[in-house]
């Protein structure tokens, strides 16, 4: 099959679910048939989950787990190969003073930085497995997504060609908010196809909903279903460039969709809250929420990630406190 003949194929289970082609009309019917979200109740549930008290051995386990689930991120206009190499070094050795510190799940960079990240990782490059560190690239005209489909697809293909293991794409929020669900869907399907490597394998696709722009929990829930139906491996809250970014209620709402999808199809979809999670205390609330909503099984890198940069150092400080028994200081962890 040549490149041009390659048909765009959505997730097979979606086709079964729809019992036929996925059209704008059938998507609309499906998404609008999803039960609504009561914001007050959702936020209360999230607040209750956030009030769990994680102490001693559970806290120690949680801190290490948070590190293992981090996509250590730099997404700045000022990024350079040197900055990326420094980030990778931190990913490999988060805490030079404690060799028992786990490594992070992935580094997350712009597409043009992928070659430098791959090179800097060297033998530590996990290449899509859970052992080692993966390279994630944001793509599809991140963060706004305002570009032609051709640009978005080549953006994606370039990053995959350069060795990205994971693609963090953004959905077209404009299309979503104006009700053109079919367009959003087709675009995700196409980007998924652009994630295909020459050997037939796929880079992992994380679909960024940019929940801060979708605004309502009902929209978040519909967008989550849409992204999963179209074939996303992960659903991700935010680019980090729009406030509010990840919040616990939004993440809870997305986890509920993932749980329902699993109940429906047996397939496991990942969730990645990104942006705004800066403290261990906050991150632990997410672990609790994951464990009590979809199950503890989701607390592994191929099913849950934190998109974060400063979170890692706070976790390291807490870790040092637990190891030594006294409070540590910012100068005792490295700045990247």
């Amino acid at each position: 099959m040549t490149e041009t003949q390659k048909a765009l194929v959505p997730r097979p289970t979606a086709l079964e679910l729809f019992d036929g082609p996925v059209t704008d009309a059938s998507l609309r019917r499906y998404l609008e048939g999803i039960p609504g979200v009561d914001a007050v109740g959702l936020e209360q549930r999230a607040a209750n989950l956030g009030s769990r008290s994680i102490k001693t051995t559970s806290k120690k386990w949680a801190l290490d787990k948070i590190i293992e689930l981090i996509d250590l991120t730099t997404l700045e206009g000022a990024d350079t190969p040197g900055k990326v190499r420094s980030l990778v070094a931190k990913a490999i050795t988060p805490d030079a003073s404690d060799s028992s510190t786990p490594r992070v799940a992935a580094v997350c960079v712009y597409g043009d930085m992928v070659p430098y990240a791959v090179e800097a990782l060297g033998v530590h490059h996990a290449k899509g497995t859970d052992s080692g560190i993966n390279v994630a690239a944001v793509a599809t005209a991140f963060p706004s997504g305002r570009a032609s489909l051709a640009i978005k697809l080549s953006d994606t293909a370039d990053a995959v060609d350069a060795g990205a293991d994971e693609i963090d794409m953004v959905i077209d929020r404009g299309a979503f908010l104006s009700g053109r669900y079919g367009q959003v869907y087709d675009e995700i399907v196409a980007v998924k196809e652009a994630c295909r490597r020459s050997d037939g394998s796929y880079a992992h696709l994380k679909v960024i909903l940019e929940t801060g722009e979708l605004n309502t929990y009902d929209n978040v829930r519909r967008a989550s279903w849409l992204a999963i139906l179209a074939g996303g491996d992960f659903i991700k809250t935010s680019t980090g460039k729009v406030a509010p970014a990840a919040t616990l209620p939004v993440t809870l709402s997305m986890l509920e969709v993932v749980r329902d999808w699993h109940r429906l199809t047996g397939e496991k979809i990942g969730v990645k809250p990104a942006g705004g999670i800066r403290t261990s205390k906050d991150a632990i609330k997410y672990l609790v929420t994951v464990a009590e909503t979809v199950g503890e099984e989701w607390l592994q890198p191929h099913l849950f990630r934190f998109g974060a940069s400063s979170l890692l150092n706070d976790v390291l400080l807490q870790r040092q406190k637990m190891t030594t028994g006294h409070y540590s200081g910012a100068d005792y962890v490295t700045i990247d």
């Binding site: 994680i54 102490k55 001693t56 051995t57 559970s58 806290k59 386990w61 464990a291 009590e292 503890e296």
Partner: peptide
């Protein structure tokens, strides 16, 4: 150990 067996927090 299961994470959900939260350590006692009395």
């Amino acid at each position: 150990m299961s994470f959900l067996d939260y350590a006692p927090a009395p």
